[in-house]
Design a protein around this nucleic acid. Structure first.
Ligand SMILES: [Mn+2]
Ligand SMILES: [Mn+2]
Ligand SMILES: [Zn+2]
Ligand SMILES: [Zn+2]
Lengths: 124, 124
DNA sequence: ATGGTATTTGCAATAGACTTGCAACAATGA
DNA sequence: TCATTGTTGCAAGTCTATTGCAAATACCAT
């Protein structure tokens, strides 16, 4: 756990939203923390390996975001199409559906992704 | 509807799987149809606008695939992690869940993406 | 502390999907 | 036929992310 990695972790802690590598880079620049964008990517890789961080690849965004794992279980997200707000959905409604799909397709299902988009309360 | 666009449409018709721009390009090359990769991208854009083609951005693939819309309604997909087989799921299990999420988050939901991965019957 | 090893970092270059500018070409139609 | 419009190919560019490599840093046994 180097100084640099501490800085990234600290940023994730004080950030409520999932952040992209570029956002981490820009934010740390502003805070006068010298860090290369490549190092951000490599740091995120390490933090994922350590199980401290989750990587989110939301649909249509064309980049990855990261959030602290903390105690978070498997969950999904909803994103506002106007302001980009991302909110955790704590339920996963797909357990029964998974069994149905296994029957219908003869696949063995081992993962899924689910994401909603819409308008947040502010943007309506 | 130019010769080139006809060739792309014909390829989509005889292809069972959703195909990427590069796959369309390679396949047409093999069939001695002269076409530029840029033209493939622009053609897919046009065919989408015309409502003839659906664009799929499956999770973790890092590229777009295209399938004929034909009569297809809103639907989802399951992909085999070994061989890449993609199968249509004809059900959408999210209508009730959407209402629940609107209540919980105060968002107005207007779209969602859902995708399963697993092992197809051949690869188990 | 000191020296030696392993890890981490920055910079430059690269990869890969996709887009854009522009000029040549083809189709359309008065 | 000529002018206007739409389509294509090539080159170059964008954007996120990765890789090679050498310099800097951290770590550890002496
Ligand atoms: Mn989350
Ligand atoms: Mn489909
Ligand atoms: Zn789930
Ligand atoms: Zn659906």
């Amino acid at each position: 756990m180097t100084r640099t990695r501490q800085a990234v972790l600290a940023l994730l802690q004080r950030t409520r939203q999932p952040v992209s590598a570029n956002e981490i880079f820009d934010q740390l620049q502003q805070e006068k923390v010298a860090i290369d964008l490549v190092t951000v990517y490599r740091t995120m890789h390490v933090l994922k390996e350590l199980g401290l961080v989750l990587q989110l690849d939301l649909h249509q965004e064309g980049l990855s975001r990261y959030e602290l794992k903390e105690g978070r279980e498997h969950h999904h997200h909803i994103r506002c199409q106007i302001c980009g707000l991302i909110v955790d959905l704590l339920l996963c409604p797909l357990k029964k559906v998974t069994k149905l799909i296994e029957q219908q397709t003869q696949f063995i299902v081992d993962d899924h992704t689910l994401e909603f988009t819409g308008l947040c309360p502010q943007c309506q």
